[in-house]
Design a protein around this nucleic acid. Sequence first.
DNA 1: AAAATATTCATCCATATGGTTGACTATCGG
DNA 2: CCGATAGTCAACCATATGGATGAATATTTT
Lengths: 111, 111
Amino acid sequence: MNDDDLSRILKAAGDTTRRQILTLLVQEGALRVTALAAHFDMSLNSVSKHIKVLEEAGLVTRRTLGREHFIAAELEPLKLTENWFAQLKSIWELRLAALENLLVSKDERDE
Amino acid sequence: MNDDDLSRILKAAGDTTRRQILTLLVQEGALRVTALAAHFDMSLNSVSKHIKVLEEAGLVTRRTLGREHFIAAELEPLKLTENWFAQLKSIWELRLAALENLLVSKDERDE
DNA sequence: AAAATATTCATCCATATGGTTGACTATCGG
DNA sequence: CCGATAGTCAACCATATGGATGAATATTTT
């Protein structure tokens, strides 16, 4: 289901550390796991786990060269969240428009 | 901290049931807790808890009339998530532009 | 071949989350 | 005042999450 993708993405993005990781990757380009971990007051392993979560959400990709894993940001999936929001807004506006019409036609009847 | 707000919003939005609640509210306008709960295969209490999470994230507001609580969608906070995404994208593009410049000036030197 | 480096895997822990049920509170209708 | 209705609060349970540490794996360096 696509809805699960959206949940995964939003959950992955819902953690401060993971958002910081994404920011680092976006501003510095692909980074190794150790390089990323250096920015956090947290064990390498914990950072590694966060990366895994981001990876499973499709928000980062991994290119392995020998023993080094290069992690890169992947912003594409965030468009799913934008789409969801846009859809909500459009439904909202449709309803408001319908409401508007109701009021207008009521006014006309009352004239 | 504002970052906590963003986490709260994304976490609230990261659950399917809660997103469905938002959709219902957006398309039908304010609804009572019981009316909302009727749409889910889940106890009233669970829905009530989801509403609370949404409320704490600012994604819904509550108007209490007597014993009835009317819940309404509040899309404003979702703009924070849009801003975050937009910021990521802009940093990304800045870096790409800088990279582009580097390549161009390298080409010029090599001519 | 041995030591060092880069990373994941496995386990453990405390706390958070999503769900349940039962009790409590508040309001409405007779 | 009493029963029904609308909700929340409290406690409980199973599973998920975010963190830690120690061991295992793979690769590079010496």
